[in-house]
């Protein structure tokens, strides 16, 4: 089962094939685990268990160690994020300019907490520590769109764009 596709497409798991290629390029170099996981995160939006198993088998790293690495680094997630992932920066520069209030507003409107996904799978919220756009503080991003100089009153209109 671990070799088949579990994404529901019924056919060949192209993403998994790609990950196998990434692993193959590592030539058994276990120090590339984080690189491989970054690719999985990028491709799937999270790190599914069956992909962890493929990595474990092919790179000869125990599942528990892989899980330990995934749960150590905040970039990796174990569950799929929403179609639109909203990220509010809580870095110092954004925080002192009121990003907490922005985050609270997003949570209030979507009715979910940080780390959660809305029931329809559309939105998820996460908090980040500095995206490096401190000149635009406070910053909120929706997938790759960056919204600078945020204040809570702008949240509703921005989210409406993605409805």
């Amino acid at each position: 089962m671990s070799n088949g596709c579990e994404c529901g497409c019924g056919g060949k798991d192209e993403k998994l094939e790609k990950i196998r290629e990434v692993i193959a390029k590592c030539n058994g170099d276990k120090s590339q685990l984080i690189h491989v996981l970054n690719e999985v995160q990028e491709l799937y939006g999270y790190v599914p268990t069956y992909v962890q198993k493929v990595i474990s088998d092919e790179m000869d790293i125990p599942m528990a160690e892989i899980y330990g690495v995934i749960t150590f680094y905040s970039r990796f997630s174990l569950e799929a994020k929403g179609k639109y992932n909203i990220s509010v920066c809580l870095g110092t520069a954004c925080y002192v300019k009121g990003s907490q209030a922005v985050l609270d507003k997003v949570k209030e409107i979507l009715g979910i907490d940080v780390g959660g996904v809305t029931a329809d799978g559309k939105f998820s919220i996460e908090q980040t520590r500095c995206v490096g756009a401190c000149g635009l503080a406070p910053v909120m991003t929706v997938n790759n769109d960056v919204y600078g100089n945020m204040d809570p009153s702008k949240v509703k209109d921005i989210l409406a764009k993605y409805e």
Partner: peptide, 11 residues
Amino acid sequence: DEGDPGAFMDR
């Protein structure tokens, strides 16, 4: 690995 929030010199 510029992790210090609010710092972006290295970047």
